[in-house]
């Protein structure tokens, strides 16, 4: 049963210290900024965060990093023109980093959500990112063994949701949302508005409600005086 919240604090209640948190978004597109801000206020610390980037500017994931709540980042592309918060933490040895090829990052989370124990993948063969990993030649091509990344909590942004928890996304803001939604024990999605059950075209639902535990209705928050 999916719960719909209008208060961001209620939506992130109970996230424990030391959790692995999967955070959606590619840059700022699809980043669940309101949920991240609520997580900062909630106070959980010692987190392992899995996200494509390691924060942009000073908001969203960058703010969580700046608040000192993240012990380890697992991402594909931490270094960007506006990743000064992460850069500073990394260079001063205050954060651990695991770099994963972008497609492997997505597939490791997909595997976690799909109950796959591990998979052989050709990406990264012969590179530093395959060092220490089991390899196997399949059909004449070398592959490395990659393990799932399972989260304790997922924070994603979708465009709209219904009261049952079905989600639709908008344009490239979809990015990691549908994959991450499947890959954790507790999936929390912020949406621009919640519609009544039955109002989303079933053919157009991208994330079915079975994956979604909590929805933060941003429209309801804005409507509250």
């Amino acid at each position: 049963m999916t719960a719909v919240f209008s208060d961001p604090g209620d939506a992130v209640a109970g996230i424990a210290d030391g959790s692995t948190v999967l955070i959606g978004g590619f840059g700022m597109a699809g980043m669940p900024v309101q949920l991240i801000d609520a997580l900062i206020r909630q106070g959980a610390t010692g987190l392992t965060v899995v996200s494509n980037n390691a924060g942009n500017g000073d908001t969203g994931l960058a703010a969580l990093l700046a608040a000192g709540r993240v012990r380890k980042m697992i991402c594909s592309f931490p270094r960007q023109s506006d990743s000064w918060v992460f850069d500073g933490l990394y260079r001063s040895g205050k954060i651990e980093l695991e770099v994963v090829p972008q497609g492997t990052l997505a597939e490791r989370m997909r595997a976690a959500g799909a109950g796959i124990g591990a998979f052989y993948c050709p990406t990264g063969v012969g590179t530093p990112l395959a060092e220490g990993k089991e390899t196997r030649t399949i059909d004449g091509r070398d592959h490395v063994l990659e393990y799932p990344i399972k989260g304790d909590v997922v924070l994603i942004a979708a465009h709209a949701g219904d009261r049952m928890g079905n989600l639709v996304y908008r344009k490239t803001a979809r990015n990691f949302g549908p994959v991450m939604a499947t890959a954790a024990a507790l999936t929390i999605a912020q949406v621009h508005h919640v519609v009544e059950t039955g109002e989303l075209d079933p053919e157009a639902v991208v994330t079915p409600c079975i994956y979604v535990d909590r929805i933060l209705d941003l429209n309801a928050k804005e409507a509250t005086p």
């Binding site: 590619f26 840059g27 700022m28 597109a29 699809g30 497609g103 997505a106 490239t172 994959v179 991208v206």
Partner: peptide, 26 residues
Amino acid sequence: PDLTNAGKMPVTELPGASYFHHADSF
């Protein structure tokens, strides 16, 4: 802001465009 390229720059969509999640994209 919901429509960017891999360099995170704003782009446009052409007729016949489609969107998909990251695991599908890779």
